[in-house]
Design a protein around this nucleic acid. Structure first.
Lengths: 206, 206
DNA sequence: TGTACATCAGTGAACGCGCGTTCACTGATGTAC
DNA sequence: TGTACATCAGTGAACGCGCGTTCACTGATGTAC
């Protein structure tokens, strides 16, 4: 019985990895149950013994992607004492991660559940974890702000960088080469932070 | 013969407007040729007399959306002497436009052609026009920058604001109320601009 | 250890739905004389 | 103005494709005795 369970878990893990590979290669729209089944060596229908439906599968892959992103950002933080430059490094690490995992990263944002079904908790958690990286250095830079206010600013900062990365990697209009993009991001993040600090000081000078 | 042509043009324009309404109501994925045909009172197949395919239809609607956006941004500019506050107003106008035309605005970014077919020129033009709004005031604020450099910064600024609007209206995690979003955007744009100016002056002080 | 039986992982054909696009056909509109 | 003919907008049924999900069935694995 244990043997059967192990087998099952193995297959399940194979399935998720195969899905990850497939999204990475062909994008979210290229994910097909039949191909997955062939890949892991089972019948089409068996997929539904391992996973409730394709939505769950996509979320599992998304969870893995978020975890790897989390690791990448953690690495970027280490050994940088200045909170300002920490934020710059994080932003650039985010950019690099997106560039290196383009399709998987896109899948995080493309995927949308049908309106009623809510995201499972573990998926929401994964996402909130990421803000921690921004929140901490930002709190050091803007000591006068309250927790809620800081949370909103962290979110805005993330959104702004995300926008630059998203449109930069899109190559819809002019293709921006990656080094130029990184430089742009670094410049704008520094500008935003300096501006935020200046404005905080101007608002209530000691 | 003229009568026939007129009729045809009328129907064609009806079609595009119906498509616009349908996207606005149900999103890009809710656009169906059969529904469109019923809406404008013709047979399913007749749609293909008016338009090459659905892709073209979506681009035509996109073009209209971009033009309205352009108008909204132009309106936001008028009567504001300070280039800094002009940029803030433009950013907020962008946010408001997106909020008021949520589905149509999303359709601009969701729609992707199959890889080989390139965007027609008139569509690319529409898009480049928009940067003009940002470019002008930015040039006034950063007099030392060259044209190309300014273009890149304008693009970055747009991307950053776009990111804030996109994730802000997404409501994927925490729903940000619109007034709070506008305030956040205004704050971050001011911070970015101030930071950019400071950094430009610091780089080569007179 | 061996036999009868139960369970359930695994099978793959078929269901069901959706939908863009095509095409043989029709009938109204316009042209030629 | 009237008649024969040509054109082509308009029709809507059918094609074609894709694909997630279900389901009756099978056979291997595990259990009971």
């Amino acid at each position: 019985m244990t043997k059967t369970l192990e087998r099952r878990e193995k297959l399940r893990s194979d399935l998720i990895q195969a899905a990850e590979r497939m999204i990475a290669e062909r994008g979210l729209a290229g994910l097909k149950t039949r191909d997955l089944a062939r890949e892991i060596g089972c019948a089409n229908g068996a997929v539904y013994n391992l996973v409730a439906d394709v939505d769950e599968l996509v979320l599992r892959v998304g969870s893995r992607t978020l975890r790897r992103l989390d690791d990448a950002l953690s690495t970027a933080e280490t050994g940088e004492p200045s909170p300002r430059e920490t934020l710059v490094r994080i932003a650039i690490a985010y950019c690099d991660f997106a560039a290196e995992n383009l399709q998987l990263w896109r899948a995080l944002f493309e995927h949308r559940m049908e309106t009623d079904k809510a995201l499972p908790d573990w998926s929401v958690d994964d996402q909130l974890q990421l803000f921690r990286h921004i929140y901490k250095p930002l709190a050091a830079l803007l000591p006068k702000r309250g927790a809620e206010e800081l949370g909103i600013t962290a979110r805005s900062l993330f959104s702004a960088v995300h926008g630059m990365v998203a449109l930069g990697l899109e190559q819809r209009l002019v293709a921006v080469p990656l080094p130029a993009l990184r430089k742009e991001i670094a410049g704008l993040v520094r500008a935003m932070i300096d501006g935020l600090i200046t404005r905080e000081q101007a608002a209530s000078p000691d």
